[in-house]
């Protein structure tokens, strides 16, 4: 019996770890009051860039105050499908990308002109559904950031409206303002500032599906039921610049096919939410923790 007991506990734990996660578990619905169609004005000028606070300069531009939502992306897909801008290819949506110059650097992979994956449709974590004619949204996710989108899918969205993905400099300036703060709202981070790993927000259940995205602009100082958030807007009024989802950047660097991401996500510890932290992946990568927002020139 003495030997049996620990074995049973271990067996039970193993079984528990094999239980499939319910990816369609009900998700709380909250109206954050933040309009995702709003753009912030970023003035031209100097700012502190990177962990070591290099002084850099940008021109003036406008940037979305939130990540692109699932609803916005679905509107785009329906319009773009009608226009022939995107097309169905098996169980994925693809679109044309003009390609990058190849330099033959070690580990670099070719990104040639052609159709590239925008979003997969057969992944159970995909919140966008397609009935063969129209795209719809899984209920509850309308005001959540669009995820499961590749870099090409993010690039394609911005291009469709004559916008573009932000450069790393533009993104960081929009999140940081002109001082050297590590987080959009200041120097320290609390659980109520952002959606990050095990931040105990109303959308996560670490015993089951783990972290999930929160509606864009959720951390705006409002109280949702019993959950009081802190106003975590950046100096220019942008939300979710730390946590929730990584955001694709527009930079294409010479000699590497990887695309960069900023901001950390619901799946990362707070250290990755610092504004200068970079992540990268192949441009066909998609994840429930990666989204994007766009910028436009003034």
């Amino acid at each position: 019996m003495k030997r049996l007991f620990p074995s049973l506990i271990l067996f039970a734990a193993l079984i528990a770890s094999c239980v499939p996660v319910d990816l369609n578990a009900p998700i709380p619905a909250f109206d954050t009051g933040i309009d995702p169609n709003t753009w912030a004005q970023i003035p031209a000028g100097e700012f502190y860039f990177g962990q070591h606070e290099d002084v850099e300069t940008t021109d003036a531009y406008e940037i979305m105050i939130t990540d692109v939502t699932t609803a916005q992306y679905v509107n785009f897909l329906n319009a773009a499908l009608d226009d022939g801008y995107v097309k169905l290819d098996g169980e994925q949506i693809v679109g044309f990308y003009p390609g990058d110059e190849f330099h033959g650097v070690k580990h670099e992979e070719r990104i040639d002109a052609g159709d590239w994956l925008f979003i997969p449709l057969n992944d159970p974590a995909q919140r966008v559904k397609f009935d063969g004619g129209r795209f719809t949204i899984q209920p509850g996710y309308e005001n959540h950031p669009m995820t499961m989108v590749t870099w090409f899918g993010a690039w394609g969205y911005c291009e469709y409206y004559d916008w573009r993905l932000p450069t790393e400099m533009e993104w960081e300036k929009a999140g940081r303002g002109i001082d050297a703060r590590p987080f959009p709202w200041g120097d320290e981070i609390a659980r109520e500032n952002a959606n990050f790993y095990s931040s105990r927000d109303p959308f996560e259940d670490m015993n089951s599906f783990g972290s999930r995205t929160s509606p864009v602009g959720f951390y705006n100082g409002k109280k949702y039921g019993d959950y009081q958030t802190l106003n975590s807007a950046s100096p220019y009024g942008l939300y979710d610049m730390a946590g929730n989802v990584w955001q694709w950047m527009g930079d294409v660097y010479e000699g590497m096919h990887y695309r960069f991401m900023r901001g950390g996500s619901k799946d990362t510890y707070d250290m990755d939410l610092r504004l200068w932290v970079r992540n990268n992946a192949t441009p066909t990568y998609y994840s429930p923790g990666v989204g994007f927002r766009c910028v436009r020139d003034k």
Partner: peptide, 15 residues
């Protein structure tokens, strides 16, 4: 295992 489905496994491994 995918990111979306990993949490129970991650919990076990962390334990």
């Amino acid at each position: 295992i995918t990111e979306a489905e990993q949490q129970p496994l991650v919990n076990l491994l962390m334990y």
